[in-house]
Nucleic acid binder design. Structure first.
Lengths: 144, 144
DNA sequence: CAGTATCCTCCAAGATACTG
DNA sequence: CAGTATCTTGGAGGATACTG
């Protein structure tokens, strides 16, 4: 099976934690977040309540089984959530953030909250930008 | 010219701000962040100091001219940063976060700070996961 | 210096079918 | 219910060359 974000960390000892460097292990986090569904999963589980597979599936409108599974496995692998299988019939599987995942979840929830609060401003900015682009096709404003 | 993340917002009035819905305009923010270089640009400019094009280029190790340009244009379009051209020879162009971009930058800086602080834990978790996978190829832990 | 303009590659993500 | 297994594809991202 393959996982998302396979930047298998290679540095050790005095490794560079500058996020701007190509090989920085911290870029693994950025790549994880670059995956389309990761943020939504972390935010969905952010309140600490465990969720079942199909419960998550219904919550994240548009996610496919495959992508949800891949995303969950990637997060499990990195220790951000746990997967618990209850051997009942039918099977029941619960996903729950770890303490580690909870910390990141809080930060990402702040980001999604920010989105809700500022999406109108962004849309206005976009409209203004397209307006300008339409009127000055060469398109660059100059400074005084 | 084409831009990253062209989810041209279509809803209006009572639009749904639930980030989990497919058409939620807030997903535009998530898609913006899903772009490989967006976070790094916002964090690099996060302290409020303007930066020139090649200065950013050097800072973000591995970014190509094309991707940096695209990323900056996308952020400018959404009102997160401003682009100022000083008509000198050679040309000088400065990028600076707007108040809007500054707010998002703060949140993303918190995320990159978190990465630096917890990357070791994530690596340990990953090693443990692979170890387990190697020993139990069928691979599922069951609950008590 | 700060970009455009092309061409090309690769893989994240989707669609679909099957299963313990 | 909660997955796995394949096949396919759009487009993000990279490489390279050229320019005001």
């Amino acid at each position: 099976m393959r996982y998302l974000v396979d930047t298998g960390f290679e540095l050790r000892e005095h490794e560079d934690l500058d996020i701007f460097l190509r090989a920085a292990p911290t870029r693994a986090v950025l790549e994880l977040l670059a995956s389309k569904w990761t943020m939504l999963v972390l935010v969905a589980l952010g309140d600490g309540r465990p969720m079942r597979f199909n419960e998550l599936r219904r919550r994240l409108e548009g996610v496919t089984q495959k992508m949800l599974t891949q995303t969950l496995r990637a997060l499990e692998r990195d220790g951000l959530l746990t997967r618990t299988v209850y051997p009942t019939v039918p099977p029941r599987v619960e996903y729950r953030l770890t303490a580690l995942g909870g910390g990141l979840g809080k930060l990402l929830t702040a980001v999604t909250d920010w989105s809700r609060e500022h999406v109108a401003e962004m849309r206005a900015a976009r409209a203004a930008f397209e307006e300008r682009a339409a009127h000055q096709p060469q398109g660059v404003g100059t400074a005084p």
